[in-house]
Structure formats: C-alpha cells, structure tokens
Amino acid sequence: MQEDKHVITMLVDNEPGVLSRVVGLFSGRGFNIESLCVAETVTPGISRITIVTKANPPVVEQIEKQLNKLINVIKVRDLTREASVMREMALICVRASPEHRAEILRIVDIFRCKVIDVGLEHYIIEVTGDEGKMTALLNLLRPMGIKKIARTGTIALLREPK
C-alpha cells in the first residue's frame, strides 16, 4: 500500500514524560517519525506537538487512534488534507568566498531569507518556508559549500474560516 507523508498535530498536557509517551508509542509500534516539534501554546499547561510521518492509510488511522488513546493527549488532527499552513525553519551556514558573496545575497533576496551572521568566510542564513522552498534553496547554496545546517521539523496550523 502507498505510503504518504502526513502532518499530525496534537495538543497535549504539558507534563513531564508526555513527549516520551508519544515518541515511545511511535517506536514501540514501529511507526515512523520524519520530524517532530514541541512547544507550549498560549494556554498554560498545554503544548502542541507536530509530527511528520510516512505511512499507508490504515497505519495513519492507527497512529491517530493510538495517540488519542494516550491519556495526556487532548486532541489529534491529521492536517495533511486539510486547509492548513505549514512551515519549517533552517539556519544555514554557507561558505562565502569573495566571488560568491554577491550571488549568495541575490539568492537570499529572491528567497526572502535573512542573513543573520556575517564573517570573512561565511554567512549564516535564516530561512522559513515549506519543504519545497527549503529544498530549492539548499540546491542553490550547495555549490558554494554549506558548512553547517540546523533545521526544525514542520510546524502546522489549521487555517481559520475566511
């Protein structure tokens, strides 16, 4: 059966051990995690976890049900086919030799990213966007030499009714 990417977001009690319950569920049942993000929401005591997973339809159904079964999980939603917004962020340290400096800045401009650290030999670029944008940007920067990179996983929100 076809395995597709799913973005699953959930609200959980912000208690010690909750992340471990969620992650343990995935590893114990052989579900896959491509990325994971956690942070508090505006409601005290409640956090949001966003997980990107690859699974076929029956497995996704199990993932959602099993997550719902965890006592500390308040609400689960698969945003994949919903009207939602999704973003990732990356900090990219790229080699910036004199002949490439202008070119890099042009790319930064086109992709609407920011240079947040400058040195004689490097730039650190901050970028947010969806997965496609990340890939495109990385493909352009790779020839210059990417020294280091730190990426977040995907975070996502359901759109509000217009």
């Binding site: 029956p58 159904e61 199990q62 049900k65 099993q66 719902n68 079964k69």
Partner: peptide, 8 residues
C-alpha cells in the same frame, strides 16, 4: 470499547 482495536 477501544477504537484502536477496530481495523487494527
């Protein structure tokens, strides 16, 4: 009673 049992 347990939704995870169904269609597992």
């Amino acid at each position: 009673i347990d939704p995870t049992s169904i269609r597992k």
